[in-house]
């Protein structure tokens, strides 16, 4: 079953590797993964769609919460959220089929972003099933090439971000240690 997970992650080296590594170590298949900076450049927002047995969904979230670079994890599978995907498509369209291709694009709410003698470049957003249909329809007109963004999702309820506060280091109150004279004065 597909699980949609939204993560808020510190934008640190290796953060993406930790998350994908966690999933692969447990043999879960990633269906899609998107990641980009948030308005705070120190943070990234990820949406991951992963194929997981329903009874393991909680475990996936808990494992992600263990990661030090992960600030927030939410399972959007059953909670109020909006999910969309973007596709870019190049469709070959000879002169005689061009009006029909444009008509179909319009029906699916796709936009023409480029046009050439060979055909069109189209852009469409929607939920993944609708985009699947769009692809099927366009394929009937001729050769196509598609790039999908993978699902991006946003929670509809605001969730408070719980962050840990700073803690003092050991000896923070007594920073008089010195190593230069070869004697420990800890």
């Amino acid at each position: 079953m597909l699980q949609v997970i939204s993560l808020l992650v510190e934008n640190k080296p290796g953060a993406l590797m930790r998350i994908t590594g966690l999933l692969s170590a447990r043999a879960y298949n990633i269906e899609s993964l998107t990641v980009a900076r948030t308005t705070d450049p120190e943070l990234s927002r990820m949406t991951i769609v992963v194929d997981v047995e329903p009874h393991l969904r909680k475990q996936v979230i808990k494992q992600m919460n263990r990661l030090i670079n992960v600030l927030q994890v939410a399972d959007l599978t059953d909670s109020p959220s909006v999910a969309r995907e973007l596709i870019l498509m190049r469709v070959r369209a000879p002169m005689e089929s061009r009006p029909a291709v444009l008509k179909e694009a319009e029906i699916f709410g796709a936009r023409v972003i480029d046009s050439s003698l060979e055909g069109f470049a189209l852009e469409a957003t929607g939920d993944s099933e609708k985009l699947d249909e769009f692809i099927d329809v366009m394929r009937s007109y001729g050769e196509i090439e598609v790039t999908r963004s993978g699902t991006v999702a946003v929670m509809m309820e605001a969730r408070r971000l719980r962050l840990s506060s700073p803690v003092p280091t050991k000896n923070a109150t007594n920073p008089q240690t010195t190593i230069d004279n070869g004697v420990l004065n800890a």
Partner: peptide, 13 residues
């Protein structure tokens, strides 16, 4: 400069 505090906002104990 000695470090006096650790801040790991995502590390939940």
């Amino acid at each position: 400069a000695p470090v006096n505090a650790i801040h790991l906002p995502g590390y939940k104990v």
